[in-house]
Design a binder for these strands. Structure first.
Length: 869
RNA sequence: GCGGGCGUGGCGGAACCGGUAGACGCAGCGGACUUAAAAUCCGCAGGCCUUCGAGCCGUGGGGGUUCAAGUCCCCCCGCCCGCACCA
């Protein structure tokens, strides 16, 4: 290879082949070394990899390669999250079968990943749409059923009345179906649920043990689970004539202390009482329809204006029998939480306040800061929601007056229990996981519906229940439902005519246990426990923050369910979690507002932008997440083609901390590209200086300086890689490269033996340091430096301790907190001596002026601050 | 709406546990080399002011704690992520 120009087109395939032949990325359980399981969230096979994948898998690959060099037996597998809606959309739009579309995409993307040089153990690859994978999923579901973790109940879906199809939330746009444009309705269907709430407490407690998870993710999960302690109690209801209603109304509240501030009661529009009343009242029925048009997403419901309708009912205040509270149906009360009914206390809940103001209901403050006189305690536009402060006191509340809200909660709970109308209750926001999907391209749910026997599980020996391939997507709805023969089977129990379940699983199930399958991808059972015991848990999991709640919570749930059914031995699958940021790119538009892809944007001398094909003026827009709709997408394939894998990897690691968003820029890749070329030239220059075979006895000052720089860089880079601070590691490597350049410049002409030796040492260390990031270039450099064998197989170097120490230290000197001077002192200098030295300095004297020195603060090794007044 | 996060030069970022703000890279400017350009190499570089000693201002905005605040506390603004059928 040319010494002037690094040819990645030649080098990259060569080293990829060499690693493969060496079995570099193959993982085996039969190994004495400690194990390390690094896993990145597997991709959906959309067709092409995108920059987000490049970033994700580069982060993981750096760690995998580093850990191998550190003596770990590393498992770094890859697979495909292959079921899901896009395959069906492609079938509808382009007429291609979901299976063909998916497997073609996988083949293409696999090639792309290989060209990026990721050290993945491809022998463990699988796709979740392989019957070999999903048959185990079906088997586990049957075991979950036996263990009582599965339930069948009614729940709401978005229904498109024109397409006669169930819609995903993302397919509902402003309350209308994305294809038909029809107003979406809510519809109740019998569906399968996994009882994640069974583990609510355990999932919450388990978070405390996850020391290497980001606090923000744990906090989000805690809030999602939403444990709350409160009281469930019942109201007596009366109709408009004052006659008692046959049943009492149960409500749940976390704020029983505010009961004397109650000014209304609100029921969910889907509450059985509201449903019953709607039968006889057109207005209530209309209100229910209005609520149904909001769809099923909590976001849409909460964003909507708070609205309600008065029901012909009143509720009797439990402690003031003469007070009747009006009862409403309200759009912000969720049927799925608590009892689907609340009492409203406008003074101390924002939603209740908004509602009360809209309908002219009284706002009675019952909690008041202690220092405020009760008669001055007023509520404006903002409710006073705090109930924990000891500086709060109950007012307007009969026997509660004078207590803190905390005491009042206790007192009310006690009295309600005494009266027999309520009890304390722990409630969770977390709902059971609805896993039924009315779609074709998913894992079939392995049950049969028999008119005589009811729901009958498919016997395990009949698994997998596979998808029929002769299906069409020319009509809306689920092809499994209308397939002529597939669903018709004999009942396994009575042998009579029966039908298969035509719903398939939520694809989140597929991704809730794949990490365990990678331990034994060919096992006869879902997971080979011996192998799982060796590899699990995942030591480092890496993926996007967008999965902070659902995917990660479902996976934690699945591990628990698998443990309880004997399929896994631990509850927490991911020992450490890292959440990467998104990849962004600037957007461009023409003056008429059309998006333009970055490749078509040219820049003139004066900096103005133009369309390179049409010459139109182009306006630069915001830097945003890469998305097809805004055309600000850079295809990794083009980047690898133009610059090679190492440049792409290096750039994506270099600019931003991995957990923050990353802006892809042309200039940035160019910079990374130049660095690869600069390194290659530098290494070849160094190779020309033959080092002595033996390590020199002594080193010149210059050589010693370079050795210190190299070993310090090694220490810093090692720490940065361990902490996944790859951008800092990159900066340290740049610094070392600069130090080596400087050294070469000043000593190239009359290089002594010790200097040549030092140069080679520094060069080897630098190459090793960037080898996890730019593995191909590193191998090529390693060879150029005359080293034998694959660098990938070499142990990570250790810095020499004595080169890391410094005997002097530079201390900045502040006077009253402002930096005025600095001194260089021996590390061992006692504080009194430092103080004396500092006070003699001209700059210090000048800054002190005619004030007198009150104190001198010395932080050893860091700073001196002179306090003068 | 609710929950979570982020905000530092022209740009991406660095700054450990409260201790020199701006490492490193990108872009820029000046110079060398070249017939020329590219590439490469060297140098400069937060802002203001300057009598060239220095000084003042500066980490989204406002307040506070401290000898010392990008970092801790309170309030506000902007952007991003999630909200249970996108993956």
């Amino acid at each position: 290879m040319s010494k002037d120009r690094y040819n990645f087109r030649e080098a990259e395939p060569k080293w990829q082949k060499a690693w493969e032949e060496a079995g570099y990325a193959r993982a085996s359980e039969d190994d004495d070394r400690p194990k390390f399981y690094v896993l990145e969230m597997f991709p959906y096979p959309s067709g092409r990899i995108h920059m987000g994948h490049v970033r994700n898998y580069t982060l993981g690959d750096v760690l995998a390669r580093y850990k191998r060099a550190r003596g770990f037996n590393v498992l770094h597998p890859m697979g495909w999250d292959a079921f899901g809606m896009p395959a069906e959309n492609a079938a509808m739009d382009k007429g291609v079968h979901p299976k063909k579309w998916t497997y073609d995409n996988i083949a293409h993307m696999k090639g792309q990943l290989k060209r990026l040089g990721f050290s993945l153990d491809w022998s463990r690859e699988f796709a979740t749409c392989d019957p070999e994978y999903y048959k185990h999923e079906q088997a586990m579901f049957l075991d979950f059923m036996k263990a009582g973790l599965v339930e069948r109940k009614k729940s709401m879906v978005n229904w498109d009345p024109v397409d006669q199809t169930v819609l995903a939330n993302e397919q509902v746009i402003d309350g209308r179906g994305w294809r038909s444009g029809a107003l979406v309705e809510k519809r109740e269907l019998e569906q399968w649920f996994l009882k994640i709430t069974h583990y609510a407490e355990d999932l919450l407690k388990g978070l405390d043990e996850l020391k290497n998870w980001p606090e923000k993710v744990k906090l989000m999960q805690r809030n999602w689970i939403g444990r709350s302690e409160g009281v469930r109690f019942t109201f007596e209801l009366r109709d408009e004539q004052g006659n008692p209603w046959p049943e009492r109304l149960p409500v749940f509240t976390t704020r029983p202390d505010t009961i004397f501030g109650a000014s209304f009661v609100a029921l969910s529009a889907d509450h059985p009482i509201v449903k019953a009343l709607a039968e006889k009242d057109a207005d209530i029925a209309a209100f229910r329809r209005e609520c149904a048009a909001l769809g099923t997403s909590e976001e849409a419901i909460e964003k909507a204006e708070k609205k309600g309708i008065r029901l012909p009912l009143n509720a009797v205040h439990p402690f003031r029998p003469d007070v009747l509270l009006p009862v409403y149906a309200a759009n912000f009360v969720l049927m799925g939480y608590g009892e689907g009914a609340i009492f409203g206390c406008p003074a101390h809940d924002q939603r209740d306040l908004d509602f009360a103001r809209k309908y002219g209901l009284p706002v009675i403050p019952v909690v008041c800061p202690k220092e405020t006189p009760p008669e001055k305690c007023e509520i404006g536009d903002e409710a006073l929601t705090d109930s924990e402060g000891d500086d709060l006191v109950m007012i307007n509340s009969d026997f509660l007056n004078g207590l803190t809200p905390r005491q009042a909660k206790e007192e009310i709970a006690r009295r309600m229990e005494e009266m027999g109308i309520g009890e304390r209750q722990v409630n969770y926001r977390l709902r059971d996981w609805g896993v039924s999907r009315q779609r074709y391209w998913g894992c079939p749910i392995p049950v049969i519906h028999c008119p005589k026997c009811g729901v009958v599980p498919v016997p395990k020996e009949d698994l997998p229940v596979t998808l029929p391939e002769d299906v069409t997507f020319d009509k809306p709805g689920n092809p499994l439902e209308r397939h002529p023969t597939w669903k018709h089977v004999k009942c396994p129990q009575c042998g009579g005519e029966a039908t298969r379940e035509t719903d398939t699983f939520d694809t989140f199930i597929d991704s809730s246990w794949y990490y365990a399958r990678f331990c034994s991808p060919k096992a006869e059972e879902p997971v080979d426990l011996e192998k799982a015991k060796y590899w699990m848990p995942v030591d480092q999991y890496i993926g996007g923050i967008e999965h902070a709640i659902l995917h990660l919570l479902y996976s934690r749930f699945f591990a628990r369910a698998m443990k309880d059914t004997g399929h896994l031995h631990l509850k927490e699958p991911f020992a450490a979690l890292f959440t990467q940021g998104m990849v962004l790119h600037r957007t461009y538009r023409t003056e008429s507002g059309e998006w333009v892809e970055p490749a078509l944007v040219g820049q003139r001398e004066d900096g103005s932008l133009y369309h390179i094909e049409t010459g139109e003026k182009i306006i630069a827009g915001a830097v945003e997440k890469m998305s097809k709709s805004k055309k600000n997408v850079i295809d990794p394939e083009n980047i690898v083609e133009q610059y090679g894998a190492d440049t792409a990897r290096w750039f994506i690691l270099s600019d931003s901390p991995p957990d923050r968003d990353f802006e892809w820029t042309e200039a940035g890749v160019e910079g990374a590209w130049r660095f690869t070329q600069r390194v290659w030239r530098m290494i070849n220059t160094i190779a020309d200086h033959q080092p002595p075979a033996e390590r020199p006895e002594t080193f010149s000052d210059a050589a010693q300086g370079l050795r210190k720089a190299a070993h310090r860089a090694l220490k810093a880079v090692t720490e940065d890689i361990e902490a996944l601070r790859f951008n800092r590691a990159v900066a340290r490597i740049y610094e070392l490269a600069n130090a080596i350049s400087d050294f070469l410049k000043s000593h190239a002409k009359d290089m002594t033996a010790d200097q040549a030796w030092t140069l080679h040492e520094a060069a080897r260390l630098m190459v090793q340091m960037f080898s996890p990031m730019m593995p191909h270039l590193a191998e090529e450099c390693w060879q150029a430096l005359g080293q034998e064998g694959l660098l990938a197989l070499r142990a990570w170097p250790e810095p020499e301790e004595e080169l890391l120490e410094e005997d002097t230290v530079t201390l900045p000197i502040q006077v009253n907190g402002k930096r005025r001077d600095e001194i260089v002192v021996p590390k061992s200098m006692p504080n009194e001596e430092i103080e004396a030295l500092v006070l003699q300095r001209d700059a210090v004297k000048r800054a002190v002026g005619d004030k007198s020195v009150r104190k001198v603060i010395i932080v050893p090794g860091r700073i001196v601050n002179v306090v003068a007044k």
